[in-house]
Write a protein that binds this DNA or RNA. Structure first.
Length: 116
RNA sequence: UGAGCAAGCCGGACAGUUGCGGGUAUCGUGCGAAAGCAGGUAUCUGAGGAAAGUCCGAGCUCCUCAGGGCAAGAAUAACGGCUAACGGCCGCCGGGGGCGACCCCAGGGAUAGUGCAACAGAGAGAUACCGCCGGCUUUGCCGGUAAGGAUGGAAAGGCGAGGUAAGAGCUCACCGGCGCGGGGGAGACCCCGCGGCCCUGUAAACCCUAUUCGGAGCAACACCGUGGAGGAACAUUUUGCGUUGCCCUGCGCGUUCCAAGGAGGUGGCGUGAGCCGGUCGGCAACGACCGGCCAAGAUAGAUGACUGUUCAAGACAGAACUCGGCUUACAGACUUGGUCACACG
RNA sequence: GCAGGUAUGGCGGAAUUGGCAGACGCGUAUGGUUCAGGUCCAUAUGAGCGAAAGUUCAUGCAGGUUCAAGUCCUGUUACCUGCA
């Protein structure tokens, strides 16, 4: 398993917000944009609306764990920004993973499952 | 047994699978001339009692340089001690609360001065409204009076007796306050005696007294530093280009060195007023000595996910330079020592 | 990390030196004017209980100082701003 490349620069975040497509769910909001690179880069954002430091850390960890389970099937060449919402620190990571796969499939980042 | 008080301590545990930060060792896989960087493997380690609020005190850096004084501003406030220091802690004094164990107090000065005390009330350091007493030119006026009434949060120290025309510390006893003297104590203060006769409240109003305080903060600061810009030296002074259409001069386009420095990077960064145990001194805070230990260090920011077992069913909450406190939030669990009530011996 | 500021009826926003809080404007309700609506005029309007008269609670929250606190002091909550 490769390490996840993270977004760090503020420019990258702003480009994803303004020019990327957004997919809104009850637990997470995804911004997706092509980046012309051979890898996928991910940035996770938790605002102060989520809560204190404990809640924000929890939200980040849950989002990262949910994405880690999916990162094997992600098509390369995208920048993803995952924004946590108010409920995120109070649910399990498997639940977040379900919502995340649905949204990433809509975005075209994950290939559609072979229907059973 | 029940109720209540104080102090201390812990704040989920265990197992499996899978992930993350850091250290050490090793492999010699990839890149590289090397240094090294990335990677694999093994092993060790990885949030708190408040990490929080940023309310105080320090260390550490830089700035103007601070050795002293004055002014301004701010903070603190009984007394004695502890501490690196503190606005913190301990003890004690005074006041208040509780049957008690015990708890709480911004607790200097109102006799240095100024201000304010609305409304009510006659009067708020100044007074005569009603009343009482005396006098007169008697439906009122003048004088005396703070005992009684009324107003107010507060009304001439409180209460009793004597005294008086009526009254009044006017006089006396007791109590409170003030001053002086004596005794005890390290001191705040306490006890005793005497004296004149007493003075409103507010300083979390201005203020006075005493003590302390230079400012900014790890995004401090130090180092490296592509590009771009600056300075110096050398070279070209052949040719070319730009600088005014042409000529001349000067400058730049070249090389080397120098200092500053934005993006970015590295250090600062964890051995410290450190932690644990014991002995001794002290009522205690704390100190001395002896022995042992090394316990996070990230840089978009590391502890997660899933499953099972167990119990009291998991609260408040996440290090970001580091310590000493304070304050605030907090499900509960445990230990120790006092107190009160009831019952029994 | 450091430094500040604000909070008052449904909304904006007053309240002097601590001395009767809810001024004033907007909004809302009712009535009038109009054929009808707007404009305009008048009255009422913080909340709870109550038929009313009244009564209790009310300046973000919790305490304290004071005779008396929106105002002064301490703690706390929420929001906002500035610097690096």
């Amino acid at each position: 398993m490769k390490t996840i490349v993270t977004l760090t620069r503020n420019n990258d975040f702003r480009r994803a917000y303004t020019k990327g497509k957004s997919f809104v769910g009850p637990l997470v909001v995804c911004y997706v944009r092509k980046n012309r690179l051979p890898v996928t880069r991910v940035g996770i954002t938790t605002s102060k609306k989520v809560g204190g430091a404990v809640q924000r850390n929890r939200a980040r960890r849950v989002l990262r764990e949910a994405f880690r389970g999916l990162s094997g099937g992600v098509r390369p060449g995208y920048d993803l920004v995952l924004v946590s919402r108010g409920k995120t620190p109070f649910v399990k990571s498997t639940e977040v993973a379900l919502h995340l796969t649905r949204q990433l499939r809509l975005a075209g980042v994950l290939p559609a499952l072979p229907s059973p």
